[in-house]
Design a protein around this nucleic acid. Structure first.
Lengths: 352, 352
DNA sequence: GTGAAAGCGCTAACAC
DNA sequence: GTGTTAGCGCTTTCAC
């Protein structure tokens, strides 16, 4: 026999059609909920399908319709709390709509270039969601070249919908909190753009820090420590700032993970928080509450849910203009921030 | 015109064939690296494909071959550090082999039953990886009914390959560490099987705890506090144990997250760790190092990598018997465990 | 080593 | 409202 051997176990649409006593086309329509089918026919079809435990072949359906009912989710680091939380929100919204989720975790600069070299999304998704990756021109072309809607979380791309928060404003409010407590020497622990994934978050949060300081007429020279992102980075950055001839009395960490690292450094240095050093983080990480860390909350899960919703509406209304949603943030004051013990100026005195 | 409108932009295999001056079949063979194609022909085909920026249509390929080159990954909570880390390992290994990863995050008991009701994996994956879910008989049937290889991480299913650690043994060693330090009243903080996802980890680690205590002839009555999994659970469990007429001098937490919650309770209660209470966790969570938490390390990422490898070999050798891999664990002693300040027994005497 | 052709299992015109 | 039928773009058998 020529051609191809028939597939295993599964019953096919023809089987359902035969069993229900209708044509193939009617089964297809009934199963996909087309309004052209009479209620009576539909229920006969459904019954036949159930009794045969029939499931449509996604491959055949995709080939014939051109739709994949799949969305690609591209995430820099699935292991970071923030991203995992966004992915959870996305996954839920997408699966509820019957979409499949293809996960691509870049991991590092290497993984990133492998991804863009192969562009494994081509011809296999109806839409793409990208998290927090500032794309260069070339990458942008590759993504838009997919010819499907693109939704961004925590970043923007011309012509694409996006969700996020106002990082600059939120950072400014965090730093203002320290200023209002009376701090004047305020440092920032900043995550360097390590594997060069081009996050914009560090830039924006630093900008917010500078803005708040400038508004208050405070000096920032030498008070920003840039280290690799993450707890260890935060620990090192804190060490750097402590080594300053005149250390800050408070620090703003780009993320809670960095703040947590800073707390360790302070603990090991024997400095009491908040008495001798105030620390404020950003994100309201799971652990922030446990460590009594003052921070800035953002609705992370909801960013994922919103992105899912944007994907669905982008698919439903391909010609609708892109949307840009900014979700609110909120200062959460806990136990790691307090007024400086002694005014920061002239006679700062911190026992070693 | 009848039938279906042709798809957008993409060039098809026929285009490549025409350009390379060979037949459709030869293009298909060349592109998939069949050895039947001469080197010279292959390079002509590759060149033609590149110049047309051709990519095979996964849908067509799947329909014709019956293979999806996709694996479904089913995870209880992608937002938990452990699972995210395993998924990262899996994703990397699978993508390197050219497989797509479909992510299913159950999230809670509701999500779990929705998943098993719809069984969205049917006809769309070549293999399934399931993390830490003890499946009931019905679920098991649904999964094996997929007719594809199943790989388990952190649990077992008859007839399927699995990776994991020896939770009982690792827990026993953790508790022995406390015993060797001289502790006699040792509590356990146990995560209740909250949304009833049927994890076996809590059972095994508790069993290890009981075993170590029994070996040493120590009493465990009333010393296990079961609360919902997670930091808050750990915090509550610790509170419970502190309220005991005779509280323990050390606690073994089922996971680092629970240990971290316990640390907060202790901090708030003004108890010093490890002087007044020793705490040991499990997992070597990212945060463990930051909090100087003594714990049990396991190679989480590697469990994912091993599972990926099992998927690939299961696909390559469908008749090979299932494998069971137990990865090693290691006690990591940090700053949260020490000898009890006052001996629990009459006159064992360890200087504070 | 290469080509011809028969499907894979659906969807979507189009006709009635 | 329902049936007919022409593809969707590949993979694989068989023949040479």
């Amino acid at each position: 026999m020529r051609g191809i051997r028939r597939n295993p176990g599964h019953s096919r649409m023809t089987d359902v059609a035969a069993r229900a006593g209708v044509s193939l086309a009617t089964v297809s329509r009934a199963l996909r909920g087309s309004p052209e089918v009479s209620a009576e026919t539909r229920s006969r079809v459904l019954e036949a399908a159930t009794s045969l435990s029939y499931v449509v072949s996604p491959a055949a359906s995709r080939l014939a319709s051109g739709r994949t009912a799949t969305v690609g989710v591209v995430v820099p680091f699935i292991t970071r709390w923030f991203f995992a939380e966004v992915v959870a929100g996305l996954e839920k919204g997408l699966h509820q709509a019957g979409m499949d989720v293809l996960l691509y975790n870049l991991g590092d600069a290497d993984g990133r270039s492998r991804f863009f070299d192969r562009m494994p999304l081509r011809r296999r998704v109806d839409a793409v969601v990208i998290l927090s990756l500032a794309l260069d021109g070339c990458e942008l072309d590759l993504v838009t070249g997919l010819g499907v809607p693109v939704v961004c979380v925590g970043m923007q791309v011309p012509g694409c919908s996006s969700v996020g928060i106002d990082d600059i404003d939120a950072a400014r409010r965090a730093v203002r909190h320290l200023i209002e407590l009376g701090h004047e020497r305020i440092g920032m622990l900043r995550g360097a753009v390590e594997p060069n994934l081009g996050f914009t978050v560090p830039l924006d949060r630093h900008e917010g820090y500078l803005a708040a300081m400038a508004e208050a007429g405070l000096d920032t020279a030498g008070l920003t420590a840039s280290t690799p992102w993450g707890p260890d980075g935060g620990a090192h950055a804190m060490t750097e700032l402590l080594a300053l001839p005149q250390p800050p009395t408070a620090v703003f960490a780009e993320s809670d993970e960095m703040a947590i690292g800073a707390l360790r450094t302070l603990r090991r240095a024997g400095l009491r928080v908040p008495e001798q050093m105030s620390v404020i983080g950003f994100d309201d990480h799971d652990m922030a509450d446990l460590l009594d860390l003052t921070t800035v909350w953002q609705g992370v899960h909801q960013q994922g849910a919103t992105a899912a919703e944007m994907v669905l509406s982008g698919l439903a209304h391909p010609d609708a203009p892109p949307r840009r949603v900014l979700l609110p943030t909120r200062l959460i004051v806990r136990q790691t921030t307090a007024p400086p013990r002694i005014s920061a100026r002239p006679s700062l005195n911190v026992p070693a």
